[in-house]
Each structure stands twice: as C-alpha cells, then as structure tokens.
Design a binder for these strands. Structure first.
Lengths: 203, 203, 203, 203
DNA sequence: TATGAATGAGTGTTCATTCAT
DNA sequence: TATGAATGAACACTCATTCAT
C-alpha cells in the first residue's frame, strides 16, 4: 500500500529479533551467570548466527544492559503502581500488600534477573543502575515513612527504609526460587516479616 | 641449632606463601568475582609467579576451595559459640545478640567472602558446601524455636527459621559493606529487625 | 542458480580447510613428533589462526586421530587389495608383489605417518588402534600361511607371520625415507628379503 | 690416610649420583618417551631434588645424551666382540650367532633404549649419533660381506648390509619387548631370518 | 654439594568480536 | 540483513631451569 510498508515490516522484524535475542540471553544468563554465558550460546539459543547478534547488540554487555533496562522498566512501572497509592490512609497490612504485589509479579515474570543483577561477576557499568534502582525503592519507602511516621528522625527513617528494602529483596529471592506450590506461603511470610518490622514505627 | 631448622624454616615460608596467596585470592575474587578473577592476577597480587601459585594450589578451584574452607571453618566455630548457649533461659534480645555477634565478626574478618560464595559463576562443587552451611544455620534456628516456641507447628517453625536466616544474611551484607563508623548502627538495626520478626513467635 | 549454492560453497570451503589443517598437521607431526608439535604451529602452517583449528578439531588429539583414521582407512583399503587375492595359486614372488605393492603405495602417499604412529609420545588412545591394525596384518599373513603351508604348526605359523610383518615394516621405513631415485632398489630388496624368509616355509 | 682421600670419596659419590640419575632417567624415558618425561620426575625417581640433577647434567638433553653415550659405548664394545671374529672361516649360522649375541645382550641390559633412540620426539642432536652408530654396524657387515662374498658388486653389498641391519634391528625390538619365557623363540627366529636372507649371498 | 621453592616462557584451548560473502 | 568461518588476545596450567639458603 504505502511505500513505508516494507520499512515498517523490516522494523517489525528487527523488533522481533531483538526480543528473540534478549529472551535467549535471559535464559542463558540465568542458567550460567553473566561471566560463564557465551554470546555464541545466546545466539544459538535465539536460533540466529553470532553475526546477527552483533547486528543488534554492540557487545555482550549491551545485551545484559538491554535485559537490565527491560527489567528496570518493568520494575519502574511496578513501582508506580506500588507507590502511587493513597497510602496515607491505608492500614499497614494492606499498604504492604499493595506495595509488594507488583514487585513480586515482575520478578516472577523475569526469573533469574534478580540473581543476575546481584552477580559479583557483572561489569560495574551494569551493576550501577541496578543499585540506583534499589536506591529509588529506598527513597520511596522513605516517603511513605515520612507521611506515616512523621515523628521519626530522618536518620532513623533512612535506616528503616534501607532495612525494609533489604528484607524485601532477600525474601523476594526466596519467593522467586520457590516451587510454585509453596510460593504463596513465602509471599505471606514476606509480608508478615515486613509488617512486624514496620509496625512499631508506623503504628 | 638443630638439623631440622632449615626444614622448619622452609615450612614456615611455605605457610607464609600460602597465606599470601589466599589473601591475594580473597582480594581478587572479591573484586572481580570467581569467573573474572585470573590466576595470573592472583599470583601477581601475591607478588609471586604463576608457577608458584600452582606449587601450592592444584588449580583455580582449589584456591577458592581453600578460601571457602577457611571461611566455613571460622563460621562453624562461630556457630558453636553462637548456639552453644543456654538459650532456653535468655531473653530474646540477648539471645539474638549472642547468636549474631560471632557470625558478624567472621564476616567482618573476611570481607568479600559472603559475596563470593553467593556468586552465580562459582563452580557447583564450591557452592554446594556453602549451601549446606546455610542449611545448618537454619537447622540451628529451628532448634532454638523448638525450645522456645514449642507450640509452633513444624511447618511454620521451618518457614520462620528460613526467613530469619534470610533476614540475617541480607542485613549481614549491609553491615559488612558499610563504612566502619556506620557499622554499629547497622548492627543494632539488624538485631532489631530479628527481634521484631521473632518476638511474636517466641513470646 | 540454486539457493543452496552458498551452503554448498561453504561446505566446500570447510572441506578445504580441514584438508589444509590435516595436511599441516601431518607435516608438523612428522617433523616434530606428536608431543613437540604445537597446535599453534599447525594452525600457522595451515595459514589460519588457532581458533580456526579448534572450529574443526576438538583438540590436538582429535587432529592426530583424524590423521590416524585417514591413514588407517587407506591401509585397510590397501589390505583388501593386498589380501583379497586368489593367493592359493600364485607363485611366492608374485604373491609378495601383490601384497606389498598397495601397502607401500599408502605409505609413500603418507610420508611420516608410519613414524608418527610408532611415536612413543603418542597418547595411548591413538596408539592402540594402530597396534590393532598391525595385528590384523599379522592375522592375514597367518591365513596365507595356513593355506600355503598347511603342515606348519600353529605356533611356528604365528612366529613366522610376526617376523614377516616386522621385516616388512622395517624395510617399508627404508623405502619411504629413501630418495626417489633409489626407491625401486629398496622395494626390490624388500621383496627379496621376504621371499628368502618365506620360501623355505611355503615351498 | 692420604689427603686426596676426601676428594676421591667426593668423586666416588658424584659417580654414584650420576648413575642414580642416569638409571632413573632410563626408567622414566622408557616409560614416558623423551618428550613426556619430566626432569622433575627423573630427579624424584633418583631420590634427589631437581637442583641436584642440574648439578650433574646441564639440561634434559644432556641426560639423554649421557644415556645415549652409555648405550653406544656398550654397543661399541659389543661390536668389537661381535666383529673381532675370525669370520672368514666360520659357517654362516655360527657367524650370525656370534654377531647377534652381544648386541642382543646389550639391548636386554638396557631395555627401552632402542625404543628411546628411535623416538620421533627426540632432538636431532641425539638422533644423529645414534644414526652414526647404525651406519657403523652397516659398515661392519659390509666388511664381512666383502670378505665372504667378494664377487658381490659394491652397490649390492651395501644394499644387502643395510637390509640385514634393518632386519636385525626390527627383530631385536621384538626380542627385547618379548616376555622372558618367549625370548629364546624370538632370538632363534631372528637368527633364522638373517640366515635365510644372507645365505644366497654368502653361499 | 644438596635442596626445593621460585621462575616465566610457552602450551592447549576458549570466546567475544569481525567480516567476506 | 543474515551468515558462520575466522580471528587473536587471554586464560589456566606445565615444566625446564635457576638460585637463595
């Protein structure tokens, strides 16, 4: 029809290729860790040749970065849902519920990502943005605390937010790596742990 | 003096070399992760040639294993101190105090080890015993719970022990990587978090 | 023309590469022996990089194995020609002629192979099949002896076959390493030696 | 007693060390071939440290050379016995007997040497003198032929001598590597083969 | 002399990346 | 765009040789 149709079709194909590749990378990285994963293995898993991989990604790091971006974007979207909440009014258990649920979902949708981005073998360039994201979560929790426990000194507020994030992160790992039939148990316990930790502060 | 003097001196030198090497390995592994660490870099850091490294360690894995063993042995000793406690009588805060302190100390003495042995790029042979150790901690906590919260159903007891261990591990990481002047704050918060989590169970 | 053309062309190139590499390996192995030959030297001789060598051969041993297989297959074909002979009827000189000719030809076509596969530095996995082949030759000669010298006791038959094979092998080495213009002389003498050794037995 | 006694004693000890080392080298070379044998293994087998080995031998090659020299000297002595024979008069079988016996004995006394010095992995410097020795044997046989078959043209005389030497060498290998209880059989067959080959020439 | 720890060049092999087709 | 053969810098590891003791 239009003369732009082939270009669009081409672009669509390119999009598909990139997804094939990032999906394959996600699998291979998850199985082997960043350092042990080979780009040839990723290309093979995606059903393309190594050359093709390098037409879409500058190098191995760029692949991981794409993965990280995809993960981070989903997380950011989850954050928005999680924190864009009239949290001032909610009772603590429900507050935690609403905050935790989308984050858990993202990690269930992206198994292995959490482990990957905690990997010691990861190049610093990739670890940094992940830490930034982590800090963003801490910041959000600080905001909640500021609203709900206004009398808490700033220093303690930060400490509390960091610890809550750490607890959340650690138990998130347990949830994600758990067998499906046990998952609910771990999710309930994750929430319970956060409640017990935050209750005396938020009251 | 004695004719055995040179042998003893040589052995002492060997001992020193091994320590130089494991120390260098600890540093390099901690900085780069297992997979990215190169044996030549470790040798260079220790101030010796690659050949010398291989006179003391069969291969890269053996180096990591030596490190793991050293770490595990210190941890095991810490466990003994931590759990060989008349815990039946102690109030919860002190119980947590006594359990946490030696474990924290070991990890402060061995910075980077915790991160290393969580590394996804680690050969399974080395990851497995570390997981076993983790399980042992869980088991110990279960024992404590059995003694102090006998009415808790077994399933919940296990869940609680696992979660307490995870919380401890996560916050231990924060403690170890914190600047020295902030460390006390994080240690206090670690204990507080555990207390709040366990209090409703132990009563 | 066809869409399969590039694939075919690629395969042809692969075939050529393998030949380049086995040829180079044959040269380098022959010059230096198995153990002193380096894979990098073989790659260089073939005009390719070390990585390319390893795209076609799993490791050094596989290269030698390919060579061994090529050699053995030619030898086996030669055996068939050599021994699939109505030998019951032929006079001894002609019998020897027919048996020796194809074996000699194979070794002239593959200079250095005989030496290589007698190399003490060779991995056992490769030496074993070569010994098996040697035994096969002995067995064939025993068959001939059984047919042509039925009164010879079995033990002596075997001894005679072994010795004939050894004589043949030794003089084959002389033939192969001789200057071309002298080769005929050595071939004639090889046959003469076998005749003189076997004549009193076969009568 | 005398002031030279300690020097002499020292020298005697040195002599013993050299023998320990060459003996050890003979074993290790025979087991592993020249290239795969390690000087450290040789030192260990001799019960000394690597440093000591290098106090007596400049390098690995020098060790092999010492071995070669020892072997060659024994062979030379054997030659003298073998060929310093009033061969003009002896009947062929006895002539062969006398020539073969000492050579066989040397090789039985030095198992593995023959194989070692035929090793393709051997440095040229060591292979050359061995070839020279081989040529000497050929020369001696030519002399015998000149005396016993004066009508044989020089060219044929040489050819015959070379082939006789090759046959002898090949079957010598069989003799040396045979189990002890079979050795006599192979020695007899060796002589028989030589007889049959030389009989028509020497008449 | 004797030791054995130390050396370091060199080996087989891998894998991120490029490029001719 | 896609291919996959080709590259070559690195890596883990070995071993002939040296040297402080």
């Amino acid at each position: 029809m239009s003369e732009e149709a082939p270009a669009r079709r081409r672009q669509a194909r390119g999009q598909r290729r990139m997804e094939q590749l990032t999906d394959a990378a996600a699998e291979v990285f998850a199985e082997a860790g960043y350092a042990r994963a080979t780009t040839n293995a990723i290309a093979a898993r995606a059903g393309v040749s190594p050359g093709t991989l390098y037409q879409f990604f500058k190098n191995k790091e760029a692949l991981a970065e794409a993965l990280a971006t995809r993960y981070r974007e989903q997380l950011r979207a989850a954050h928005e849902k999680a924190f864009d909440v009239g949290y001032a009014q909610l009772p603590l258990p429900e507050l935690i519920d609403r905050m935790a649920a989308p984050m858990i979902q993202v990690n269930l949708d992206n198994p292995g990502f959490k482990a990957l981005f905690a990997d010691a073998g990861m190049p610093e360039r990739l670890a940094a943005p992940t830490r930034a994201l982590h800090q963003a979560v801490v910041g959000k929790i600080e905001e909640v605390l500021a609203a709900r426990a206004p009398s808490l000194p700033a220093a303690e507020r930060r400490t509390t937010a960091v610890v809550a994030t750490q607890i959340f992160g650690a138990l998130l790992g347990t949830v994600v790596s758990a067998a499906e039939e046990e998952r609910e148990i771990w999710i309930r316990e994750l929430k319970r742990a956060l409640q017990r930790y935050l209750e005396p502060v938020i009251a």
